[in-house]
Design a protein around this nucleic acid. Structure first.
Lengths: 111, 111
DNA sequence: CACAATACATAAGTTATTTATGTATATTTG
DNA sequence: CAAATATACATAAATAACTTATGTATTGTG
């Protein structure tokens, strides 16, 4: 587990990238996917996830459709048209940032 | 300029790495060095810098010595013995984190 | 059938930062 | 040479993304 502050600002890009790759996902699925992909190193808490998803929806980056699985509602999120360009921006931004920090700290990419 | 939240948690590692590389530095010098090394992409504000330096001193990671340059005090910071191992930990932590985020976002290192 | 997992949600608390402000000396420029 | 800018320290209030805590309800499992 990383010092929590390092994670700050990465949640939106992570979510958006997952939606770009997978078409549509629901909240709980996102937390599990991230846990899987990072071997448990990153755990998105629900208290962070849902407000973020709501915000992304509010500003038109993602849209939702609800489905009933049995009696339980499942809320699927997917990128809007505008969202597609937002993902690119965000990922590029993070990418550029990582490169800058890497060079500052003289970190070699672990390929 | 990056979205400010991405920077969170990187300030301490950056400062410590600079001190490791340069032996000793004073606050203002650190801000300038970071600006230089990142071509202006990262600007450490004084409101962030000084409290962080004080904290690092308080927990024994760095130590200080004051020098007079004319009438003006300049406060030099350098790593303590304990600080030397702290730097290694912090840098490794960030390095590991960057690798995880990179793989999540499928970012290739810009070599 | 109790407990864990799934699935949503919100509210209060934390904390590293930004923004704002203050003080003083040294240097550059018009 | 006066005014603006750079150097150099410092602290306090405001911000915002997050964690932690709490709540509700359904579904799967040992």
């Amino acid at each position: 587990m990383y010092p929590k502050d390092l994670l700050k600002g990465t949640l939106q890009p992570i979510i958006l990238k997952l939606l770009e790759d997978n078409g549509r996902m629901y909240g709980y699925e996102i937390t599990q996917k991230v846990k899987d992909l990072t071997a448990g190193k990153i755990n998105i808490t629900e208290g962070a996830l849902y407000p973020t998803l709501h915000k992304l929806e509010a500003d038109g980056t993602v849209k939702t459709e609800e489905e009933f699985i049995g009696k339980r509602v499942r809320k699927y999120y997917s990128l809007t048209q505008e969202g597609n360009s937002v993902v690119r921006q965000r990922v590029t931004e993070v990418s550029d940032f990582l490169a800058t920090i890497s060079s500052l700290l003289n970190i070699k990419p672990t390929t």
